[in-house]
Amino acid sequence: MATRLFSRLSKQVPDWPTYLASRAKDAKDPRLERYYASGTPDPDTPIGEVPLVAMDLETTGLDASRHGIVSIGVVPFTLERIRLSEARYWVVAPRRPLSAESVTFHHITHSEVASAPDLDSVLDELLACMAGRLAVVHYRPIEREFLDAAIHERLDEHLLFPMIDTMSLEAVRHRRRHWLWLRRLMGRPPASIRLHESRQRYNLPAYTGHHALSDALATAELLQAQIARHYSWQTPVGTFWR
């Protein structure tokens, strides 16, 4: 069922509340069960009332079937406040080898990764941080595919949940033609550049990119800016999630 739902994602918005409710019943891992049970808000809830969590993953490459996750940053927030005191950041050891190329990209070294825990051991904390909050990412496929693949590899179950993608909000607004051009490309250009460019449009300051925590913060700020400029706090959350 999960794969079928996933394959339809690009075409239409799935019925997330129903999906999460059903997974809460059939999830085998208690951590996933707890996460799914926390559910998701009604699609008609105004975005201004929804607890959110910005998330960013740094990975060893762009292909979820060959590359792994090296770090995760999460920043809980609402449109009212980004709560940095509740932000979390983990370095995790990917089960696939770290290439020299990705090291220069992320500033995370082999030794750091060597001493890092497996994702499995931080999953409880990660899911606790995300429970009851709607995820916000910049360029959805990476976070969705990598997280799902990593969990599937470890628990033989899927981890799928609704996400607001600030990049597609931006593409719809400003860069539809660009967006198509981008999609014609095989992979994706370095994410932080697009994040940076989007932020510039809202006069948000430049941050040092390629760090899961600062990119998560940058994403949270970007969503606040996008809602302030193009939507309202009253816009139903169902308009945004995919």
Binding site: F77, E80, R81, I82, R83, L84, S85, Y202, L204, L217, A220, E221, Q224, A225, A228, R229
Partner: peptide, 13 residues
């Protein structure tokens, strides 16, 4: 630095 909260405000608000 650890305790700050953040928010964006659009010009004119």
């Amino acid at each position: 630095a650890e305790q700050v909260d953040v928010r964006y405000f659009q010009a004119g608000t």
